[in-house]
Every structure is written in structure tokens, then in C-alpha cells.
């Protein structure tokens, strides 16, 4: 994985500290061209990986990338599935079974329901695989070397003790997409042993890691200890602690942590993107000099 990954929260009005800023972002990125402009700014700053949720609008981004193969040569996308609000809203509207009927592709579900519950019961893992395939459709023909499960699902399954689905996710991603599975989580200390027990060694885990202990369940010290053990390929996200820390200080902290393979960040302005990349590079070069 590249050292710096570019995120997509800013494009979809995800702002952890301000509803006002969310709205401003929604207005700014109303048109796909505005998203592409920022992605091009990120590429110009040397970032070639875009880590994004499987939001409907990412399908448009994928179309543009496919239509311009020369321009986007070497550009990678790390899909993060699912876009949770889509399913959450559907569950409110249709219930759990109704949502499955709506989103599991083909006649699979229809025929199973006709056949009664007994038929369906045995193969929930296959249903999950179908949902993964449905989410992956938009990325056809695009280089997606790592495919992530979003934190709300990872952590939901973790809390429910449903590790079989986490492991099955990884297996399906490897087998069908010839890619590596990644897990986004707010609970790194609890997730890692579960993945290890399931036979996933040195998993790719994207977790909230920042100087102010923001969304680091179990506490910063525990995270630092786990990082020092080098048992996972870790991507640090929410490095600014939801905006609570000055950028430079935040990036210095996370750049200097051991075994953080990549840093994920999102920004809307060219200047911000450049500054962030330069700051990370600066602290990385210091680290190299020290070692």
C-alpha cells in the first residue's frame, strides 16, 4: 500500500464536527467535476490511491476513470463497502428481510422466499457474497487491490461475535477479486485477535489513530502497544482527531508511530492536500534519518 491514501468523506458531506461544514461540502461537491478536480489535485501531489465508500456517486467517478485510461494509469481505488446509510435507511423503511429482498441481486431471494425459510437458512455466507458482488459492480475494470469492509459492519459483526462473516469476507475478496481484504474498525484491539484466530495473519486494518484518543476504543496506549507488536498492516484514519488537533502536530504524531503503513486523509483544497503530503513526507524523512 502507498504511504498516503486519499479519502472521500469531504465529497459526501461527512464531517465529524460540524453540520454546517457538511452542508458547505454537499454544495461544493454537487457536481462530479468538482470531485474529479480534487482527485486530480491529489494525484498531482503524488497520491495514487483513492479509498472510497461504495456511494452511488462513486459509480460516476469510476465511469470517468474508465473513460480516461491514459490519464488515470496506475490510479487505484480501495472500495469500502457498504455505503451504510443506504442499508440503514432501507432497514427503517423495509425491515431486515425487505432490505435483503431489495438488495440481494437476481432472483436468488425471491425464489428462496417462495421456497420457504428452510431453504434460505443454510447459506447466509452466500448471501453476503452476493451483496459484495453487487457493491463491486461499479468498479469493474478498475484496479482495486484492497477492498474494505466499513467499520459499522465490521464492528457490528465483531460485537455480535459473528466472526465467520469477517473471515468469509476476506476469503471471498481474495478468491473472486484477487485482492486483499481490509477491515475498517473503531475497535482495533478487539478486532485483531478475532481475525488472527480466524486464520487471517497480518491483516490490513484501517483504524482511527490520533494524538487525542478520538474513537480509539480501549485507549491510545493500547493502540500504541499493539502497533509496536507489528501484527497488522495498519492504515491510520481520523488522524486529525475529528479536527481537534492542529494538522502539523497531528501528522507528526501519526507519522512517527511504528508499523503504521499508510495514512488516510481527505481534503477539499489543493493547498490542504499539498500541505498534508509535504508534512507527512517531512516527518517520514526525519524518521529515515533517525533509523
Amino acid at each position: 500500500m502507498e504511504r498516503i491514501l486519499f479519502g472521500d468523506n469531504q465529497f459526501f458531506a461527512v464531517n465529524h464536527i460540524s453540520d454546517e461544514k457538511s452542508r458547505a461540502q454537499a454544495i461544493k461537491f454537487k457536481d462530479d467535476a468538482a470531485i474529479m478536480k480534487v482527485l486530480d489535485d491529489a494525484r498531482a501531489a503524488g497520491i495514487n490511491t483513492f479509498m472510497c465508500t461504495t456511494h452511488d456517486r462513486i459509480a460516476n467517478v469510476c465511469d470517468i476513470i474508465r473513460d480516461n485510461p491514459e490519464k488515470y494509469e496506475g490510479f487505484k481505488i480501495y472500495p469500502c463497502m457498504p455505503y451504510a446509510h443506504k442499508y440503514a435507511n432501507a432497514v427503517t423503511e423495509l425491515g431486515i428481510v425487505g432490505t435483503l429482498k431489495e438488495y440481494v441481486p437476481g432472483n436468488f431471494f425471491g425464489s428462496l422466499f417462495k421456497g420457504g425459510m428452510a431453504v434460505i437458512s443454510k447459506d447466509f455466507i452466500s448471501i453476503m457474497e452476493l451483496l459484495i458482488d453487487a457493491e463491486m459492480k461499479m468498479f469493474k475494470g478498475i484496479d482495486t487491490p484492497v477492498i474494505f469492509l466499513q467499520n459499522v459492519i465490521t464492528d457490528l459483526l465483531l460485537g455480535l461475535g459473528m466472526k465467520d462473516f469477517l473471515i468469509a469476507f476476506a476469503h471471498h475478496i481474495e478468491k473472486k477479486y484477487n485482492a486483499e481484504a481490509g477491515f475498517i474498525t473503531m475497535n482495533l484491539p478487539q478486532l485483531l485477535p478475532v481475525l488472527e484466530e480466524g486464520g487471517i495473519k497480518n491483516p490490513i486494518i484501517c483504524a482511527s489513530i490520533n494524538k487525542v484518543n478520538f474513537r480509539m476504543s480501549g485507549g491510545k496506549e493500547l493502540y500504541e502497544q499493539i502497533l509496536s507488536e507489528g501484527r497488522a498492516r495498519v492504515i491510520a484514519m481520523q488522524v486529525l482527531g475529528g479536527g481537534a488537533i492542529p494538522a502539523r502536530e497531528a501528522l507528526e504524531y501519526v507519522s512517527k508511530l511504528p508499523n503504521v503503513e499508510s495514512i488516510l486523509f481527505g481534503a477539499s483544497s489543493k493547498q490542504n492536500i499539498q500541505n498534508t503530503v509535504e508534512t507527512i513526507n517531512h516527518y517520514d524523512s526525519q524518521k529515515i534519518m533517525v533509523s
Binding site: G95, I96, L100, I120, S121, F124, G159, L160, M162
Partner: peptide, 28 residues
């Protein structure tokens, strides 16, 4: 899920009218 992860809690039973939900919870 939150209860399942709580160190002081043991989940002893779940009641739901949906067969599919119960089956998933029992099996996994």
C-alpha cells in the same frame, strides 16, 4: 452488538418474530 462486546454482560437470550434473524443469530 454493543452488549455482546461489553465485558460485564452475558447475553442469555434474544427474542424476535423473524425466523431469518433468529437463525442468523443462533448460527453465527
Amino acid at each position: 452488538s454493543i452488549l455482546g462486546a461489553h465485558p460485564d454482560v452475558q447475553i442469555v437470550g434474544v427474542c424476535d418474530t423473524s425466523k431469518i434473524v433468529s437463525e442468523v443469530l443462533e448460527k453465527y
